[in-house]
Design a protein around this nucleic acid. Structure first.
Lengths: 215, 215
DNA sequence: ACCCTAACTACCGATGCGTAAAGTAGCCCG
DNA sequence: CGGGCTACTTTACGCATCGGTAGTTAGGGT
């Protein structure tokens, strides 16, 4: 606490980034209600009014954190999935790998998104984000198996939930994976568990539904 | 609002139950911070001091809700799983069926448990509950496949996450299942997805681990 | 040296937990 | 049927926390 930073003037853009980073950190630790604007200010090494100047109200600030992290996550997963022409299970594995990689490299962003935001005034926004991810998964599965999109939606939810569960284990347990790339290992585990079941899905539900029924 | 309940005297035990029911309802709708003690009192048709008399402080009240719902859920899943001697996949399917049934029949209890409590001062307690459920799943999987318990823990997390994801879809989407028993259908779907993968697990990780290494 | 504006200190008002005090009425018992 | 024990209500308030802002200070480019 000897660092009596003597009040530096910074460009608005830089300050805004600082404040947002601090907000993500604090929100991820304390939650939306638990975090105080003063805590955010302290974490950013800055005074409270400055947080208001750059982040707006508390809700606006939280929403900004949410959107930034959500965009990051979605973009990386989406770009990793690659072109629709590729092998389905390969695409799925790549997407999962990107997902786990994003989580591990940005832990607190993940926490803000899925744990803290699920309650309160942002449940709707988080559900929307989750829906976008589930939609990606549904596209992947439907495209890979040649099944109607509507029929695979519950399975997409299952898949995303499974990824969340595995991620939770990975982020909270202190067990180590004996692989050089943890995200790789996690993606392999998940594909190993759900891969066969998904592949067998064609026989399970295809007979009862028209394949051409694209929603 | 014409129901001017004319002030009934009740046994403490009954009142306590009333207050707890109201608390679960309000907490599930508004979250821990969003709910006010006065709202709980109003929902129970009772005055605020009485809520304090029977429920203690807000945190104690919430914790009581948490524990009651958690115990209910765990007990029903545990008893449904049945004896270790039975067929592994059958046990798993029974447990999942009980899980989904508990969710559907006690929606707000579920909401309190998993959505509202995951943040704030109760994250630890919810993690403990989740761990107990994961432990049950791990026992089921390890026992069924004859694998060391330590090796299946991540897969148990995956399984529980998958169940959560499917449950979320079932509780939020308005799609209907064309089965007489939704819990049955959900359990079937989940077993269909993860069953083959779990069964194949023996070949995947058994060679690299001693089977007798029970933790 | 000047002035714009980033940044700070200090404060207000609202909200909500928790409780105290005083009165009212249900229900058991004689 | 009547009296009293006590569960319950009403009302009011203390107190802490925290979101948000008004007025002041000082950094640094020109």
């Amino acid at each position: 606490m000897t660092s009596e930073t003597p009040r530096r003037r910074l460009a608005p853009e830089v300050r805004r980034r600082q404040v947002l980073d601090a907000a993500v950190a604090v929100f991820s630790e304390e939650g939306f209600h638990g975090a105080s604007m003063e805590a955010v200010a302290a974490r950013a090494g800055v005074s409270k009014p400055l947080v208001y100047a750059h982040g707006g109200s508390k809700e606006e600030l939280f929403a900004a954190c949410l959107h930034r992290e959500a965009d990051r996550l979605l973009r990386s997963v989406q770009s990793a999935a690659g072109e629709p022409g590729d092998e389905p299970l390969v695409r799925l594995r790549r997407a999962l790998r990107a997902f786990f990689h994003a989580l591990t490299s940005r832990r607190d962003g993940w926490t803000v998104l899925w744990r803290q935001a699920s309650t309160g005034p942002f449940a709707g926004e988080v559900d929307a984000l989750r829906r976008r991810i589930v939609d990606q998964a549904a596209d992947l599965v439907a495209g890979g198996l040649g099944l109607p999109r509507g029929a695979v939606v519950p399975y997409a939810h299952t898949l995303v939930g499974a990824a969340e569960g595995l991620a939770q284990w990975w982020l909270t347990s202190d067990d180590a994976l004996d692989r050089t790339d943890p995200a790789d290992a996690l993606a392999d585990m998940l594909v190993g568990v759900v891969g066969p079941g998904l592949a067998a899905l064609t026989d399970t539900i295809a007979p009862s539904t028209a394949v051409s029924d694209q929603r």
